[in-house]
Structure formats: structure tokens, C-alpha cells
């Protein structure tokens, strides 16, 4: 403060050079790493807590330790006994949705990227808007339709419903990755006598590998995480995805927190594994889904 006041008004203001100014702000980059680790630790604390709570001896209270000093796997035993079948159901539904969604979305994406239909713009608009329709709207209508068709409490019923999360997203992601395929490659194959379908399977699909992986990963994660359709389109425990299993734990026996948290950890494994091994595809999907 004082230094500003005491500076003579007519004195030329000292202009620090660029390098000087950078010199002033030179903070060792390790400081940023430490700060970054701190931010990440705060953000991921709940996930740590989930793991920690899952390893506490089962009991009614949460007032366990801050660290799993004496880890107990009782929670996991209960979780697998109660929810093992539900985890399997989730896995089957998720894989089924991946296959179904890619099979429906890939040809459409290719057509929207390469064929010169006049209504491509309108179709893309419809797909964008479909992503914004609230899931509860779909659930309301599907419940009554499924009731008539006998699709309630069935794996195909869940796969079809979950594909509503996956297909519009997959079409947009895949189309973006297929836009850059040169039409000449496909023309060459066609000259050699391959039909459109043949050229699609043997040329377009292999070239679009990255897009297919990204779209498939997200189809899996969307479905694995789905709660709304599990909640509304199943009424018995024959076919019960694990997300609904957790919800019922929360309602009925929130007494046994270690089992609830062990189930939560088991349901988080796909996301954690995929984030670690397929990081770049996940990042591509997160960005691609928003701005395309």
C-alpha cells in the first residue's frame, strides 16, 4: 500500500519484462502436484469411505475406524450371498445391451455419416432430442406395454429399455468417428463387387474400432448403472439388477452397512476397471457426447 502512495506521480512506471514476470510467478511444479493430489483426495474421499466401510466388521453402526486396520470380509460374504445373482443379472443385461445397441447404432451411424440422405439433419436433431426425454416418461409407457407383452421381469425387456440410454449416444459417437472415412475406400470395395453391407462389415467396422469401443464402453456403463428401469420394469426378484438390490438394502436392512458398502464396491468395479484400462476412450466419450 505505502509503496504505491509514495511513488512519485510523474515517475515512469517500471515495466517488468516478460521473463521477469514469469520469474516472479515461478512456483515449483511439485507444489501443483501436491495441490492436485489434495483436490483428488477430497473428491475421492467418499469412494475411499465406501471401501473402508465395506471392510469393517458387520454391525448396526457406522462408527467404525477411519482405516480398515482389522479388515473383515463378512460384508463381502453377505453381499455375494444376497446379491451374487443380481450382479450376474446386471452383467448379462449390460453385455446384451452393448451388443444390441452397437448392432442397431453402427449401421445407422454409417448411413448418417456417409450416405447423402436429404433428412440427415432432421434425423440428428431427433436423436439429440431423444436423449433429453426423461427416463420416467419412457418407464411409464413401457410398464403398461411390457405388462401386455409379458416383458416385465425379463432380461430382453431390460435390454431393450436400457438401449434407450445407449443407442442415441452410440449413433452420435459412431457417426462422428465415421465421418472421416474416405468414400473412395468403400467405392473401391464396391467396384470389386462387394455389396453395401459387405463393404460395411469388412471395411467400415474395422476402421471405426475406436468409436465402437467408446460407444460400447458407455453402453455398458449406462446399463450397469441403470436404476430407473430396474426399479420400474421388474416386480419380482427373478430378474433383479444389482442397482435395485442396493436400493432394497437401503430400505430394509440398512442395519448391516458393511454388506451394503461391499455391494456398492462390487458394483463400482466395472467403472473403476474401465477407467483405469480404457481411460482415453472414456475421456473421448465424455467430450464427444456433449459437443458434437
Amino acid at each position: 500500500m505505502t509503496s504505491i502512495i509514495s511513488t512519485p506521480v510523474d515517475a515512469p512506471r517500471p515495466q517488468p519484462s516478460l521473463s521477469e514476470r514469469r520469474g516472479v510467478r515461478k512456483v515449483p511444479s511439485a507444489v501443483f502436484t501436491v495441490l492436485g493430489i489434495f483436490f483428488l483426495a477430497v473428491m475421492l474421499f467418499p469412494i475411499y469411505w465406501m471401501v473402508n466401510a465395506s471392510l469393517q466388521p458387520s454391525g448396526n453402526t457406522l462408527s467404525g475406524e477411519w482405516f480398515p486396520v482389522n479388515p473383515s470380509f463378512a460384508g463381502y460374504q453377505t453381499a455375494i450371498a444376497d446379491q451374487g445373482a443380481n450382479l450376474l443379472t446386471s452383467l448379462i443385461v449390460s453385455l446384451g445391451t452393448v451388443v444390441f445397441s452397437l448392432a442397431v447404432a453402427a449401421p445407422a451411424a454409417y448411413a448418417l455419416a456417409q450416405f447423402r440422405f436429404r433428412w440427415v439433419g432432421a434425423a440428428l436433431l431427433a436423436i439429440l432430442i431423444s436423449q433429453m426425454i426423461p427416463g420416467i416418461v419412457i418407464a411409464n409407457a413401457l410398464y403398461t406395454a411390457y405388462n401386455d407383452l409379458g416383458l416385465l421381469n425379463s432380461i430382453p425387456g431390460l435390454i431393450l429399455a436400457d438401449a434407450t440410454h445407449a443407442i442415441p449416444f452410440a449413433i452420435l459417437i459412431l457417426r462422428a468417428s465415421m465421418l472421416s472415412i474416405p468414400a473412395s475406400i468403400i467405392e473401391a470395395a464396391r467396384v470389386d463387387g462387394a455389396g453395401f453391407f459387405r463393404a460395411f462389415v469388412s471395411i467400415v467396422i474395422p476402421i471405426s474400432r475406436n468409436g465402437l469401443i467408446t460407444a460400447g464402453l458407455f453402453a455398458f456403463l449406462f446399463t450397469w448403472s441403470d436404476f430407473l428401469f430396474a426399479l420400474t420394469l421388474t416386480t419380482t426378484d427373478e430378474v433383479r439388477p444389482v442397482t435395485l438390490g442396493i436400493y432394497q438394502y437401503l430400505g430394509s436392512q440398512v442395519g448391516n452397512w458393511s454388506a451394503v458398502m461391499a455391494t456398492a464396491v462390487l458394483s463400482s468395479l466395472p467403472a473403476i476397471v474401465l477407467l483405469v484400462i480404457a481411460q482415453r476412450f472414456i475421456a473421448a466419450g465424455a467430450v464427444g457426447g456433449a459437443v458434437k
Binding site: L44, I47, S225, F227, I246, S267
Partner: peptide, 10 residues
């Protein structure tokens, strides 16, 4: 990104 990828019910 992890919190975003977990199932919401988790």
C-alpha cells in the same frame, strides 16, 4: 472422473 462413472445408486 470416477465419481461420475459410478452407478448413481452407489
Amino acid at each position: 472422473l470416477l465419481p461420475w462413472l459410478l452407478p448413481l445408486i452407489v
